[in-house]
Amino acid sequence: MNESYINYSLSIAKDGLYCNGSKEVDLQQEGLIEKLDSIYDSQIKDYPKYYRMDGMAKLVFILGDLICARTKICDDIDGSDLAFVMLNATGSFPSDSIHNNLIMDGFERASPSNFVYTLPNVGMGEVCIKWKITGEGLFLIEDEFSANCICEIADLFLSQGKCKAIVIGWAEPTENEGNCIFLISNKGKGINLLNTEKNILKIRKNE
């Protein structure tokens, strides 16, 4: 069986942004959105559409953008060979709530720019636009974080030849910590972590 490797990992913990297990950015803010905005301001700052995104799209965008920037994966392989998969439990809950509240006063109160974010894969679409990622994409909903599912899907996509590398992660905006993203491929034997449940869990817990 082909083994796959975690080439890079990012995790947003209560106290900071961790890259491959080490804290790279200190985060003192209480809430997740404040943390994300702070990361955007200090690390990215080149995608103005960030500001019209809801909490979910911001989270996906930050995770996806940072991993593409740090790994330069889009220089190594063609955009059509990079798969992008994200998972969470509550879908597009932040913009769902906003939209739902707005329309209580009538359909005409809906905001088109909010409504387009009421689909959990749209934040992924923003990352694809910025990095010209044109490969396979998928958004899955799980009851709760599952390292097993992340491993399994990554292995599935790689073994079935759907991609040369996969960016896969968990983006749950109702959770203040534990949101993470991984670049996984068949390359990196020895120097990278093996793609296993145990390793995925360790990275998520910043151990």
């Binding site: 955009g79 059509s80 992008f84 387009v116 749209v122 679409g125 923003e126 694809c128 636009i129 990095w131 010209k132 990622i133 044109t134 490969g135 396979e136 994409g137 998928l138 759907k162």
Partner: peptide, 9 residues
């Protein structure tokens, strides 16, 4: 198979 346009959301 699936592919992204990478053009507009």
């Amino acid at each position: 198979f699936s592919n992204n346009d990478a053009n507009h959301i």
